[in-house]
Structure formats: C-alpha cells, structure tokens
Amino acid sequence: MLLTAIILLAINLLLLCWLAIRQMHAQRALRTLRMDTQELAPLHAELGPQLRKELTEARNRVLSVEILNPLEVAAKESWVAGQFGALAPALIRREVYRQARDILETQLREYGIEPRVRLLGGR
C-alpha cells in the first residue's frame, strides 16, 4: 500500500513538472506574440479601411506590392512623364500602379494562376 502511494506520488510529481515546463513554453510564446503584435500595430494603423477589412474578415491571403520609385519608372518609360512628373506626381503614381497591376495580372495568368488584382487606397 505504501509502495503504491509512493509510485502515484512520483507520477503526479513528474506530471506536475511536465505541466510547469509546458506552461513556461506557452508563456514565452505568448510574450513573443505580444511583442510581434506591438511591432505590427503601427503598420496596421496605416492600412486603409478596405484592406483592414479584407485582412480581418476574409480567409484570403493578401499580397501587397509597394512601388518605391514610381516617378523614376515613369520617367524611364515616357519622356512626358519625366518632364511633367513634378507637376502631377499623384497622376503619375496612379498610372504606374495601374500599369503594374495590369502586368501582374497578365504575368500570373501566364503561369495558370487566376488572380484578382486590385488597387487599394492611394491618394
């Protein structure tokens, strides 16, 4: 009887240690996720309402592309865009993004991918 009680006590002690270790791992993972969330919070605030809705409600994945040098791209492609880019930069950016959207859609279809390429946000 005493031997059975000692064995059960040992099993309970081992189980308790295992659960404590699992709890520590879970707490560490939770801390990491909280830090990641804090780092991503400013980026989430920058998202427009349409994209924020898409990311939170839909089960779709969203691929984001930001063109960092739209005025340079436009200037390489067109002499007019290079000359008047300073006068109407928003118009030039909008046109570069529209053309990039069309190129992405065409290229993805060539690979057998059926995309829904949209422009969200912008000014």
Rank of each mutant, 00 (worst) to 15 (best):
E57K: 11
G48S: 09
Q23D: 00
V65R: 05
Y111P: 02
L71A: 11
Y97K: 02
L108V: 08
L119E: 05
L8G: 09
D102C: 00
E110S: 07
A45S: 07
Q50S: 14
K53W: 13
L43D: 08
L71Y: 11
A81G: 02
Q99L: 05
V65E: 06
C17D: 05
L8F: 10
L13Y: 04
P49I: 02
W79G: 06
R116C: 06
L40W: 15
G85L: 01
R28C: 01
A74P: 12
L63R: 13
T4S: 09
T4L: 10
E39Y: 14
L14G: 09
L30G: 04
L55I: 07
P115W: 01
F84P: 01
L91F: 13
A81Y: 03
E46V: 14
R61L: 14
R59Q: 08
Y97A: 07
A90Y: 11
T32R: 12
A5N: 03
N69Y: 13
V65Y: 15
L68M: 10
N69H: 15
L16N: 05
M1N: 00
I92M: 09
L43Y: 14
M24Y: 00
A90T: 06
R109F: 07
R109A: 10
L68F: 07
H25G: 02
T4H: 06
E114C: 03
L87Q: 05
C17M: 13
R116Q: 04
P49E: 05
R61A: 15
V96A: 05
A88M: 07
T56N: 13
M24C: 00
I67C: 10
E57L: 14
V73N: 02
L104P: 00
A45E: 11
A88P: 09
E77R: 08
P89L: 03
H25E: 03
L2V: 11
L47E: 04
I103R: 04
L2W: 11
D102T: 02
E66T: 15
R109Y: 04
E114N: 12
R116W: 06
R123L: 13
H44R: 15
W18S: 08
I92D: 08
R93D: 07
L30R: 15
L16F: 09
I11A: 11
Q99A: 02
P115V: 02
V96M: 06
N12R: 08
E114H: 04
M1P: 07
L3D: 05
